[in-house]
Design a binder for these strands. Structure first.
Length: 483
DNA sequence: TCATGCGGGGTTA
DNA sequence: TAACCCCGCATGA
């Protein structure tokens, strides 16, 4: 096997162990005695399956970057979790660094309700929970099952919202806040600024540091400055910590690098969804919604977006549940006139016909991430385009490895991998014929999600040349990687 | 205080 | 009946 092929094999996002094999979390018999396991995936998305080692701590804890809460499926064997979505600024304001507030929803219901009463650290408006409806109008679900020495993971649905903070980020932030709160330095500052607290609302453009220092513990608790998880900086939340450094420093916390690069994200000129070519592209192959880095928001746009640190208005915080933001503003556009939601229970499952609150015909997804404004955003561009089709998985034209995409002609395809790694002890295991992997993906994905493509000629995979939207459409398969 | 897992129970197709 | 979801409770960090 060539070096390239070895790397290809090693890439868990290309042909994960879980996706090489055909199994379902509900199968009475799952693959056994696996010699190879998937590396833990923090940011799974799409209809994917992984098989982790039973000794994998993250898998044991059923961790996920997404905020997943336990959902009862009345099956003790299988742990089911559903995605809570993401907490954002109700005004969709832009943070100082151009990012958006994307907090991790608290898992605990009560904590989440409290969380939603807090205010945006940037513009002081309310926070809003965007529920996940990536699975037929229901939250994306993750299934965990321990079987033998393996931990089986299966995800259903494609997250239709930005990533929240990862758990580690949230924990780090909380501990940083605690440290900050208990530090003598903070107490001293607090004493100094407390007499000024009454003037808070007169401060034209409070930044996080000011808020943190001026508002005391309670306020701190309310604000909990977010470490933005920029869609514009996919999968590198902390790769470039400089923009957020002040936040950490204001809390006595050095920038962390807690979030390991998980899934590469792809830039889009227009937000749209991709389905993972499971087994071939794996969970890393989807994208949420990224605007083209080449088209950052104009000054006017930034201001229109609700201010943020550079343009906070003094009008009282307003929560518009009827908002109908212009998509061009990287905003939100509910299709239905109905208030989008407030919390789980305020909305019912959406019909699968795509009347998603945040969908519209032009933007298949309800969330349009902020246009990247930092140069670093350009560093994580992935130049791939893979068109979704029912082509067999074993012979993908393009696979993604890391942040690059490779034409795998000449490389071992999934079939070869299967042949090499198929367990013998799992007699019931079905080896994909015409890519059961893909089949399984679409069996799951299509019924509910076809509507997303209604006005978006097709689901496309992969990234593109960052500055060339026509390219992205015209060349769905392209070799853009380089060894 | 909150994350996590379990389990009862309601709703819908 | 199955497959969803919501909710409350217990537990542990």
């Amino acid at each position: 096997m060539s070096k390239a092929a070895e790397q290809f094999d090693a890439a868990d996002c290309v042909c994960s162990v879980g996706m090489k094999l055909t199994w379902d979390i509900n199968d009475p018999k799952l693959p056994q005695d696996l010699k190879q396991f998937d590396a833990f995936q923090e940011w799974t998305d799409g209809y994917v399956r992984y098989i982790y080692s039973g000794e994998d701590k993250n898998a044991q804890r059923h961790l996920s970057g997404w905020a997943m809460r336990n959902t009862n499926n009345h099956n003790c064997q299988i742990l089911k979790k559903s995605c809570l979505g993401v907490v954002v600024c109700a005004r969709n304001c832009t943070l100082q660094d151009g990012g958006k507030l994307q907090l991790r929803p608290a898992i605990c219901d009560k904590a989440r309700q409290k969380q939603q009463k807090k205010l945006c650290p940037s513009c002081n408006s309310a926070l809003e929970l965007i529920p996940c409806r990536g699975h037929s109008g229901y939250p994306v679900t993750n299934f965990w099952r321990v079987d033998g020495k393996s931990i089986f993971f299966q995800a259903k649905g494609v997250h239709d919202h930005p990533r929240p903070e990862s758990k580690s980020e949230t924990e780090a932030r909380r501990s940083a806040v605690k440290r900050r709160m208990s530090s003598p330095h903070f107490s001293q500052k607090r004493r100094l600024v407390e007499p000024e607290m009454g003037r808070y609302h007169d401060i034209p453009f409070p930044n996080l540091h000011q808020l943190s220092c001026m508002e005391g513990p309670d306020r701190f608790n309310i604000i909990e400055p977010n470490f933005p998880n920029f869609q514009s900086q996919p999968y590198t939340t902390f790769q470039n910590t400089e923009p957020y450094k002040f936040m950490y420093e204001s809390m006595g916390e050095a920038p962390t690098t807690l979030q390991k690069p998980a899934n590469p994200r792809l830039y889009m000129t227009r937000p749209h969804y991709e389905f993972p070519v499971s087994g071939c592209l794996g969970s890393s192959s989807y994208t949420t919604l990224y605007k083209d880095p080449a088209s950052p928001p104009s000054e006017a746009e930034s201001n229109k977006m609700g201010g943020g640190l550079t343009g906070v208005s003094h009008s009282p915080p307003t929560i518009s549940h009827e908002r109908n933001y212009d998509p061009k503003m990287a905003g939100w556009k509910p299709i239905l006139g109905k208030a989008p939601y407030s919390e789980r229970g305020d909305y019912g499952p959406l019909p699968a016909n795509g009347n998603h609150h945040y969908y519209n015909s032009e933007y298949p997804c309800r969330y349009t991430g902020p246009a990247p404004t930092t140069p670093t955003a350009l560093q994580t561009i992935i130049t791939t385009t893979t068109k979704v089709s029912y082509q067999p998985c074993p012979k993908p034209s393009v696979v993604k490895y890391g942040e690059n995409v490779y034409d795998v002609k000449g490389l071992p395809n999934c079939s070869a991998l299967l042949e090499e790694t198929s367990p013998t002890s799992y007699s019931d295991l079905k080896i994909p014929e015409d890519s059961s992997v893909i089949k399984s993906v679409h069996q799951d994905a299509l019924p509910a999600k076809m509507e997303r493509a209604e006005n978006f000629d097709s689901y496309r995979y992969g990234g593109y040349a960052p500055n060339s939207y026509p390219d992205r459409v015209a060349h769905p398969f392209r070799y853009d990687g380089e060894y």
